[in-house]
Amino acid sequence: MKKFILRIVVYFSIAFFFISLFQIFISLKIENEIITGHDNFKTTSNVNSELVLLGSSRCFSHFDPAFFQTNFNLKSTNIGVDGHSQISMAYFRLVDYLKHNNNPKFAILNFDPFMTPGSFTKNGGNLVHKDAFARYAFLPLNEKWKTVEHFDYNILEKYLPLYSLFKYNQLEYSFFPNNSNYEKYGFNRNDLEWKNEKPDTLVNFKSKYSINRHKNEIKKALKFLYEFCDSNGIKLICIQSPVHESIYYENIFETPQQICSDLNIPYIDANYKSIRKDSNNFYNSNHMNINGIHLMNEKLKKEKVLIQLFTE
């Protein structure tokens, strides 16, 4: 009996040792790589930008840091999180960024009717791209990133070596990052043309606009983010980037401005009519392509609020 148990224990210990070694090797290997097109905490560490860009995929794919560097002489980093339009996610990502960088002077939040408050205290909820962040789930090797905590990985995913990489099929991308269909940065995929056969209709989108229904909660969440930025010496600015005309509804798209006005947050409505009415500027209803971004940047360059803030 003793011999049996000893052999089983030795076998499983050796197996555990080897898979732990493999996990450590992979964790170290991907530490400085962007895989599956999603954020990498290490590549945005020690960059010490003066401007960070926050928000969802509309931030991730609309704001090119190079534009702000060239035109406003501000070193910039885009930390928009694809698939996550909660203000809480923008906050988590900013907290993680601040752990490894000097505080920036400015933060731009892409603030639009798609935004939801999210939860600052309870993890879970929107779990889009939980798979992409699973490469950070093996916590013994990583710090406790707030962004990762949001995804609420279970005990096996956190402590069993290779478990999260296997479960979320990240092993292949760990070795072959180029196998992923994603671009490294959102604004690299904006050379796409409109791919919807039919433009989305406002009716389809209205249910996605929660801003009027949850105005107070969103205001509260934005206030929380604003105060956090303020306490860290960061000036928060909100910009609403364009959507296609087919899903634009004035009554809804004016609400972000009202909220920012109530909270005294500088706001720029970059949802310019001339851009949103032309399908050539978009690759889908709510994401611009390179044409649209180019036009938006041309106009942003001349925005008095922005010039004033950045040249103060």
Binding site: Y11, F18, I19, L162, L171
Partner: peptide, 15 residues
Amino acid sequence: LYFFLGITTYYYAVS
């Protein structure tokens, strides 16, 4: 052989 079978099983059991 045991390790190969074990790790392959672990991989597919999880993924």
